[in-house]
Simulated assay, not measured.
Amino acid sequence: MNDPLPTTRPILLIEDNPADLDLTLRAFKRRHLLNPIQVARDGQEALDLLPGWEAGEPLPLVVLLDLNLPKVSGLEVLRQFKACKAACGMPVVVLTTSDEDRDIKTAYELGANSYIMKPVDFDSFASVAAQIELYWCVLNKPVHSLS
Rank of each mutant, 00 (worst) to 15 (best):
M1A: 15
L5N: 14
T7N: 00
P10M: 05
I11E: 06
L13M: 03
I14Y: 06
D16E: 14
L21N: 02
A27G: 08
K29E: 15
L33Q: 12
N35Y: 04
P36F: 13
V39A: 12
R41K: 15
G43E: 00
E45I: 02
E45H: 05
A46P: 01
A46S: 04
L47H: 07
L47T: 01
L47N: 00
L49I: 07
L49K: 04
P51K: 07
P51L: 10
G56W: 10
P58F: 01
L61T: 10
L65M: 11
N68E: 08
S73H: 12
V77I: 02
Q80Y: 06
K82Q: 09
K82G: 09
A86S: 09
C88S: 04
C88K: 09
M90C: 13
P91F: 01
P91Q: 03
V93C: 12
T96E: 09
T96R: 01
T96N: 14
S98P: 07
D99H: 14
E100D: 15
D101W: 07
R102M: 08
R102F: 00
L110C: 12
G111C: 08
A112H: 03
N113L: 10
N113Q: 14
Y115E: 05
Y115Q: 08
I116M: 15
M117W: 00
D123E: 15
D123G: 01
V128A: 14
A130W: 02
A130R: 15
P142I: 11
V143P: 11
